[in-house]
Design a protein around this nucleic acid. Structure first.
Lengths: 142, 142
DNA sequence: ATAATAATTGGAATCATTCTTGATCTCGCG
DNA sequence: CGCGAGATCAAGAATGATTCCAATTATTAT
């Protein structure tokens, strides 16, 4: 566990390799951004943020990095309807609640000891690789 | 005019108005297609199908009709990742299972008497307007 | 019937994402 | 150390689903 570049204060230590993925400078910064900014940013949000540290990074590279991280199960991709994809580093199984008033996305955890299979009639023999639960709504005004 | 499923007549009577939405000829045909072809077609699938009956209909109109039907809670829009939206006339609360091998989408019903709130820790005061549950996976090979 | 309103059409525009191509970097190996 | 193969990156072009726009047509209310 080494801080790759000594010029940069390593608020978050990122190893040189995660899950078999070589952590290049760009991937590190993309990942670091997600760890620091846990509000489910879009690729473009990440792009703008990462530019502070890597002024020459391209949007295509941010997309590449995000895809590589998703592919290696280091981060998760979250979709609401067909809006821009959002990304989060929370790997625990959880859903998302989109507040239609504020636009804020909240992580929704499962109640301990429960799972989707408790409420859904899954087809016999189905092997689930991925689950996406998205809710939209608002908070009751008092 | 061939009916895909022999149980379902090619001609389905559609009222002139549903849920306050004027059912124009185009909306009728779009809706009829969804009722007959319950395999979650995309807008383009519907477009191609409807052209048999309305050769001059435009893709934009199909999109308009689908949106109007969704807005009036006559059909549901279903999204997988960021792929093309799909549409289905099954209004009961249900999720979807995408078979990664065949591409077939299966409706997944809730077990009777259960709801998502049984397994999710919803934030206090949250009012849910819409729920989307999508699973991807495959069937275990024997 | 006539005016006002809503719906339809075809094509242009949008916009997130992916692709392409050439440059650059990294790693293994002599 | 130096070289070559294979990754990775950058910049911009291309893609593709969806939306927008302006003009036409249909429907409804007066």
């Amino acid at each position: 566990m080494v801080s790759i570049n000594p010029d940069i204060p390593a608020e978050i230590e990122i190893p040189e390799e995660i899950s078999g993925l070589r952590m290049t400078r760009q991937r590190q910064e993309v990942y670091r951004t997600l760890m620091q900014q846990r509000n489910h940013p879009t690729a473009n949000d990440v792009f703008m943020r990462v530019k502070d540290r890597l002024p020459h990074i391209s949007l295509a590279t941010v997309y590449n990095c995000l895809e590589a991280l998703v592919q290696h199960d280091i981060i998760r991709q979250v979709n609401f309807e067909r809006e821009s994809s959002r990304y989060c580093p929370n790997l625990s199984e959880h859903g998302h609640f989109y507040d239609e008033v504020t636009g804020v996305i909240h992580d929704i955890d499962f109640k301990p000891g429960t799972s989707l299979a408790d409420v859904l009639n899954l087809p016999p023999g189905a092997v689930i690789d991925d689950v996406e639960i998205t809710l939209r709504g608002k908070f009751a005004s008092l």
